[in-house]
Design a binder for these strands. Structure first.
Lengths: 232, 232
DNA sequence: GGCTATCATTTTGAATGCAAAATTCAATGG
DNA sequence: CCATTGAATTTTGCATTCAAAATGATAGCC
C-alpha cells in the first residue's frame, strides 16, 4: 500500500466550479468583509433566497465555513456568524506571528527575483497610498504584500493555514483607524522588511515580519479597548 | 457594531451530537487510521450503507473533510481519500515543526505543574513500551505527549491548527518501523524534552521539540524512500 | 398586571426524488 | 484481436419533502 506518492503530478486546476464551492466562497466573502454581522443569526432561508439556491448546497457551505471557524452552528438553532472573543483573537495572532516568521525564513531564500520585484512594486504602490492617506487601498496593498511573501515561501500548506486564520481576523484588522504616528511607524517597518527581503536575510526578515504583526495587533487592540471604554 | 467580544463566555460544551458531526468524526477516523486507502475512490453509496444514513449528512461530512484536506472531491466524479505527495508531506512537516516550536515556547511558561506531571507520567509509560518494544503503544503515548504539550500552550487555535495538519500525516507517521538505534535516539530526545519542560526552559524546549519532529520525519522519509527503491 | 402553559408557526435535520454527468459494457468495425 | 462508439446503468448534484425541534403567540391563571 503506497501511502505517499513519490512526486506530485502536474495537478491541473481546471476543475469546474460546483454550485457548492461558489456558495462557500461568496458566503465567506460576506463574512470576511464584514457584511454579515458577527453574532447575528443567519437563517438558511434568507441566504437561500439571496443566492437563489436550495437549502442543500447552502447547508453544505455552512458546515464547511463552520469547520473554518467563520460560522458557529448551534444544533437545531441554526448558524451565527462566529464572533471573535479577544482571547481567540490573541490566540490566532500568536499563531499567525509564528507563521509569518516561518514564511520570512523560507521566502528569503526561496522567492524568485521576479517575485521580490513584484513585492517591491506593491511596496511603492503602498507608499503612494500612505502619502495620499488612502487607508483602504493601503490596507489592500498591505495584505497583498504579506500574502505575496507568504506565497513566496513556496509552501502551499502554509498559505492555506495562514489564509484560514487570516480570514477569521481580517474583518477585525480592517477596523483599525491608524493614527498618523502609528501609520508612519508601520510604513517604516515595511521599509525594513523590504530591505531584508532584498538582501535575502532570512533571520532578519523572519524577525521583522513577526515583530511587525505583533506590533500591528498590539496597537489595534489598544485602540479597540480604548474605544470600548470610551463607549461605556 | 461590536466585532470582538470583550471576554469569552463560559462556553459550555453540552451540545447534542448531530448526525452530521458523528459522521465527520467516524469518517475522519477511518481515513486517519488508514482504514480507507489513499487515492481510492469512496462512493457515497457504500459509506451511506456503512454508516446507515442517507446521502445528505454524508455529503456534508465529505465537504468538511475536503476542507480539512483529508479527502479530495472531484466534481461529478465523487470523493477520493486524499493521497499525500512527498512535496505536501514536506510542506506540512515544515509548518508542524514551527508550530511545535511555538507550543514549546508557550507551554514552558503556561503549563500547570499538574499538567507537567501528567506528561512525565506519560513519558515513563512510554519508556516502558520502549523497553518492551511495544511499538504501537509507544506511538500512542508519543502522540499523547506531544498533544499534551501542544494543549499545554493554552492556545485552542494552535491545538486545532496542529491537529488538522497532524490528521493528514498521522497515517504516514505510523508507518515507520523504527530501527533500534533510531528508536533509542528518539527516546533520548524525549528525555531532553521532559527535562527542558520540567525546568521550564522555553527556548530550549522550543528548539528540542522542533528538532525532534524534524529528525523524526527525516528518518521516516529516508526509510520510506529506501522502501520505495527496494520495491522497484 | 404579570407569569406560565399550551398550541400554531417557523426553522432546522435528514430522507427521498429527479435530472445531468460519468462509468460500464457490449457490439461493431477495422 | 484491439480500438471505438453508443446505449444501459450507476453515481453525483441539487431540489423537494417530511419529521422533529425551536420560536412565537395566545389564553388561562395567580
Amino acid at each position: 500500500m503506497a501511502t505517499v506518492i513519490p512526486h506530485s503530478p502536474p495537478e491541473q486546476r481546471i476543475a469546474r466550479r460546483s454550485l457548492h464551492d461558489e456558495v462557500v466562497e461568496r458566503l465567506r466573502d460576506l463574512i470576511v468583509e464584514g457584511e454579515l454581522e458577527p453574532g447575528k443569526r443567519v437563517p438558511e432561508r434568507v441566504l437561500c433566497e439571496r443566492f437563489g439556491i436550495s437549502r442543500t448546497p447552502l447547508r453544505e457551505a455552512l458546515k464547511v465555513l463552520a469547520s473554518e471557524g467563520l460560522v458557529e452552528l448551534l444544533p437545531n438553532r441554526g448558524a451565527v456568524v462566529a464572533p471573535l472573543t479577544v482571547t481567540e483573537l490573541d490566540e490566532i495572532i500568536e499563531v499567525m506571528v509564528t507563521l509569518e516568521g516561518l514564511a520570512g525564513m523560507l521566502a528569503a531564500s526561496r522567492m524568485s527575483d521576479a517575485a521580490i520585484s513584484e513585492v517591491k512594486a506593491l511596496h511603492y504602490e503602498m507608499l503612494a497610498c500612505h502619502a495620499r492617506a488612502d487607508l483602504h487601498s493601503y490596507f489592500k496593498l498591505n495584505q497583498a504584500i504579506h500574502l505575496a511573501i507568504i506565497a513566496g515561501a513556496g509552501n502551499a500548506t502554509l498559505v492555506q493555514t495562514y489564509g484560514a486564520l487570516n480570514g477569521r481576523v481580517r474583518r477585525f484588522r480592517y477596523m483599525a483607524n491608524l493614527s498618523g504616528e502609528r501609520w508612519d511607524h508601520a510604513v517604516a517597518e515595511h521599509d525594513e522588511i523590504l530591505s531584508a527581503l532584498t538582501k535575502r536575510d532570512a533571520t532578519l526578515l523572519s524577525r521583522l515580519l513577526s515583530d511587525h504583526l505583533r506590533n500591528k495587533y498590539q496597537h489595534l487592540k489598544q485602540a479597540y479597548q480604548a474605544g470600548v471604554e470610551a463607549a461605556e
